[in-house]
Design a protein around this nucleic acid. Sequence first.
DNA 1: CCACCTCCTGCAAACGATTGTATCATTCTG
DNA 2: CAGAATGATACAATCGTTTGCAGGAGGTGG
Lengths: 341, 341
Amino acid sequence: MESQVTLKDVAREAGVHPSTASRALNAETRSVVSQDTVERVVGAARRLGYRPHPLARGLRTNKTMTVGMVIPDIENPLFGPIIAGVESKLGEEGYSLLIADAGHSHEYTQGVVDSLIERRVDGLILATAARSDPFIDNLATRVGAIVLVNRTTEGIPLPAIVTDDHAGIGMAVAHLVALGHRDIGHVAGPRSLSTGMGRYQAFIGWMHSFDLQASSDVIEEASWFQVSPGYEAAVKLLARRPDLTAIVAANDLLALGCYRAIRELGKEVGGDVSVTGYNDVPLLDLLHPPLTTVRVPYRQMGTEAASALMARMTGTVRTGAPVSVRLRPVLVARGSTAAPL
Amino acid sequence: MESQVTLKDVAREAGVHPSTASRALNAETRSVVSQDTVERVVGAARRLGYRPHPLARGLRTNKTMTVGMVIPDIENPLFGPIIAGVESKLGEEGYSLLIADAGHSHEYTQGVVDSLIERRVDGLILATAARSDPFIDNLATRVGAIVLVNRTTEGIPLPAIVTDDHAGIGMAVAHLVALGHRDIGHVAGPRSLSTGMGRYQAFIGWMHSFDLQASSDVIEEASWFQVSPGYEAAVKLLARRPDLTAIVAANDLLALGCYRAIRELGKEVGGDVSVTGYNDVPLLDLLHPPLTTVRVPYRQMGTEAASALMARMTGTVRTGAPVSVRLRPVLVARGSTAAPL
DNA sequence: CCACCTCCTGCAAACGATTGTATCATTCTG
DNA sequence: CAGAATGATACAATCGTTTGCAGGAGGTGG
């Protein structure tokens, strides 16, 4: 709404040519302008309240200083901290964040990403990767910088910021074993996602390393990382193996589903059947019993993703294979796990 | 990364001048171009995969087709649905959403909004309004279209999409009264926010209309809409009035604080003391007992806000006082409320 | 048959910045 | 002191659109 003050105005006020004003204002080209001209221009700019027009600049430099982020489901509490992390890091460097909610559906993701690309984002952060994701594969040729977050893909190698599922599940299993559990089940996430698959494999690996049985009948896969699928999987699992004294859920929401299933059997969570989650989303420490879970540093995940993306956008790391980061989680032991009766 | 195809390319392919191509491609100016030229241009555009450059267009038209949204705290589960609603509505109309997390602090809000304005957003959706908010007041002169969401302000009149706090609190109080409660307390939100104040006043009003006492000793104000402040307020309230059989909390998170305070006194939520919340944020139906609360149509709040904003951006409603919308909530009765013993 | 109107299209100037190149005044060098 | 080197600034093109204006072709009416 305010009167638009342009570079030309600043130049006139300082008594120089617009191009000189431009150079005086830009840090990299400032050295080519004489000391006192710089001062005059900077003074004029401040006095007039000059703000460069991002569209004009972007048009010329072919950079929008904008990055797009695609979220599978913005209502999932998981993504709040990630977004906050990304945003704070990008903000420091003058980038803005365009958020797009893919709303579960795959076709919709396509459209949403297209519109981000049309907007000429300088980079893309995807939280929607599937293990086999042809869509992402051919995306890599359409946009300069891409970073995956939370989930990764097995196609084209891309930098990915994820948690160390092997370590995280290890903590959960070791915790249960230390409490004395031996009959431990797993409610897995969809194996089409790296998180579902990774935790599934980690569970089997760790069970074996503790000399415990991890045959397929102690494992049930939920169709989706949500409460209801978790409930359904837990019902099946406990029907097949009523002797289980503990369940490792691949995710907090699945763990909530387990709560419900356990209660429906007239059993007590923590007492009869211990449950562990994964993620440590907010508020679940207020459950009864409070959920034992594996805490992932999600905010940091966001900042790391932003850093990795900027490294690629600025071309710092154009060379070599993409670096991925595996963040180390920690176990948060609460009331949903206890020694078996 | 792809070879950039410009309007000039399309024009050459179609054998016309770029300006003609532009007119043929834009819906409003299309009528001035002959039928078969339009077809030729559109065909060429499709064949080449032409996508207009948003920066070039925006520079010329002085529109970015971008709106900014400022959130007080992106980790609050409340805002997920609102954002989703805003985004889906804006997306339909070709707008993109720039999200900024104000991270509680007021100075930070200033900076965040400035950067949105520098980005030349066409409009602004603010979820951060305080009742008395000089910052917003002078913002109104700096940006064309502003809409408030969730909270409103008492300064400059601006369109605001909020819930009907009076109706919502009325439902909660009436529900408790119907169950037989007479000694009802209120854990209020900060009265510096319209939501805190509105629900506080609504509580008093409804209590009186039921001929119940609502003196200041049955009301305690929490410093912030979060669990811990809610806990602290509830502790004070119950120490002062141990005879209360029900608490109306101004918000779900405050209600969770009440849960904790009630339990610390060795009492049972729902049995000894009933509790109601406000908002119906996800997952709280899984608590024990599940929270009785007032459900607000948050997604709709987002779409309404987007519609109102577009009306102002496109100048449809430049005339007259800003229209505000009060969305009607519904009561969701669950286990945290019961007849008094 | 000429003038005029209508329809379409092309021309060129913006929008506000960045940047390669030219120009000019110095100062330095031999 | 001539000529080259240096340093500071100005000029002008460019990024990809949109849009006011001019002009040409063809048709119509007087």
